[in-house]
Design a binder for these strands. Structure first.
Lengths: 338, 338
DNA sequence: TTGTATGCGTTATCAA
DNA sequence: TTGATAACGCATACAA
């Protein structure tokens, strides 16, 4: 409970209206008065009362949401988090404009960005492509329209903040788990979604880096792509193990896990050690069956909740987060702490 | 944004005052009118506007906090969480009455409970003792004064909710990690704080249960107490290993970790596998040094934040949580995801 | 350039 | 038993 604008007005010897104009930089205030009010506000640590603000702000806030969630169960929890944060601001009238999409098509995402240009703010899982960055920068135009990148970040873009996975650390964590579980002695097949996806590459980098430095006796037998697809995953994994029967461990750093795991289990001579990412229904099942030993989760609910909260706090109360990089924890899940 | 009390008054053909009296059960409303208003409120899903409420509720809320935090670094994060939740309700005037204590003295805690009897609500890490339960029940008197148990629960007490660790699951998780790290082959020394503390016993139960069912080749070499004390821990661990040189793994399910770990490392013939609980500064250091392989954290910040939020949501908005048991996640931390 | 009046949704007080 | 009114802190339209 800080000082109120009314008390501030008394202290400054002006009316509440003038205080409002001064502190919200609406102009039309004599410079000397402006300065006096700002000084007093600082001195008495004036913070506008949110309840008063909520009561008077009756225009609805339109938020654009662009996510590649179709066919991707990972986003179910993200969406729950987004809705939960919105519910925390039920005193305000907030409208979410959903644009859900499958896959990564630059042209389609450009069109969606066009659609949300008139909104007050945006949350997006961007494709890391120069055209997307340019279009976003055009909409942002000096923070008038804040954009939060969610789960994927983008280069050369004036986005307000990134909320999502620290992919490099995720890979490191997986690498260490793999080293611990195999006693530093394994021939590992790494299965990535696509060598074109930045996050997947960063995970691989972190994974391989830790194994090299902390578990130098391990070997990477190969790195294969599965395009996040189960059938493709089964085929490629089976082929790789057929070509190198010494493989006794696998790291999946993206989707298409189930197909690959079953292929590996049936092909390997002895039960392989398998580490994956995320905690989808499919992976939970594999963990319960004992086929996957551990997975590195990235708090999807937290990602949704936090991205929405950061955006609304800025739009409603001009709150700027301490850092523009907000990383989810990389949580290790095993059978008993799912 | 739901319907307002004013609109409700119009629909019911009465004044706002009557609606307020009816919905808040202040009495003095004709039964037929009371019923009509309640029906309309349900039909139109009336939810009082929190901002309006905040603006008018100007009496300060006194919250009692009784925690055994002195000399226990685990509670630093808990306290940060408590403060953070309070800050989320900055529109209200809230006063925290701290009672911090060292150790578990029933008489002292009884006195502290007396001190907070006049407050609006309480958050406490109770000693699980009949006298404490009775004194708390006396203060609670039919939910007029809600009490949240934090980190420790208590039997036969009408506390409003428990926010804290699921100790049994914590032990299970540690057991599984131990099994995975030792390939199901280890002679384990279990170090507990006290066999009188319920949480410690539940952790041991979970730990031993998982090892028995999932890793039957492991053996528990012994269970010793260290009273959460480093010196005692060093002495007892050294003695146990001197008496059984086959010990090659340790599980610490409470405090006094640092002393015990150094003793174990210097006594064991080869480097032991060590799993601990929590993520204090001391344990972080041990993990970085590679002496502790993994620890099972219990989200202390979340515990503080959630307990305060649940209490305030009830006192201010009559929000009742879905369950009266709110468990922290048992998170596995290793060197790279600290 | 500055001041005043009004209203947002709720609770509390006083009058009827 | 019920109604009318003021007050909370803020933004805004309008008046000066």
């Amino acid at each position: 409970m800080s000082i109120t604008s009314k008390q501030l007005a008394e202290l400054a010897g002006v009316s509440r209206g003038t205080v409002d104009r001064a502190l919200n930089h609406r102009g039309g205030v004599r410079p000397s008065v402006q300065q006096r009010i700002e000084e007093l506000a600082r001195k008495y640590n004036y913070r506008p009362n949110r309840a008063g603000k909520a009561l008077v702000m009756r225009d609805t806030l339109n938020i654009g949401i662009i996510i590649n969630s179709v066919g991707n169960p990972f986003f179910d929890e993200v969406k729950r988090g987004l809705e939960a944060a919105k519910a925390d601001y039920s005193d305000f009238s907030i409208n979410l404009n959903w644009h859900e999409e499958k896959g990564y098509d630059v042209e389609r995402q450009l069109k969606q960005i066009e659609d949300i240009s008139e909104m007050s703010g945006t949350i997006i899982t961007p494709i890391n492509h120069p055209d997307i960055a340019e279009r976003l920068n055009h909409i942002i135009q000096g923070k008038k329209h804040p954009v939060i990148t969610l789960n994927n970040d983008i280069n050369n873009c004036a986005r307000f903040a990134y909320v999502g996975c620290n992919y490099f650390q995720s890979g490191q964590t997986a690498g260490q788990i793999m080293g611990l579980l195999t006693n530093g002695n394994a021939r590992i097949l790494a299965v990535t979604g696509s060598k074109k996806v930045l996050g997947h590459n960063q995970r691989l980098e972190g994974f391989i880096g830790v194994l090299k430095s902390d578990y130098p006796k391990t070997r990477i037998a190969g790195i294969i792509e599965n395009n996040d697809d189960d059938d493709r995953s089964a085929y490629e994994v089976a082929r790789a193990i057929a070509g190198d029967s010494s493989i006794d461990a696998l790291y999946f750093c993206a989707g298409g896990v189930t197909g690959g795991v079953y292929a590996a289990v049936s092909q390997c001579r002895k039960k392989p050690v398998i580490v994956t990412c995320d905690l989808t229904e499919g992976i939970q099942k594999l963990i319960r069956e004992g086929l996957v030993q551990a997975t590195v989760d990235q708090q999807p609910y937290w990602q949704g909740y936090t991205s929405m909260k950061v955006l609304l706090d800025y739009l409603l109360f001009h709150v700027v987060p301490e850092s523009d990089l907000m990383y989810a924890r990389n949580e290790i899940r095993v059978k008993y702490n799912i």
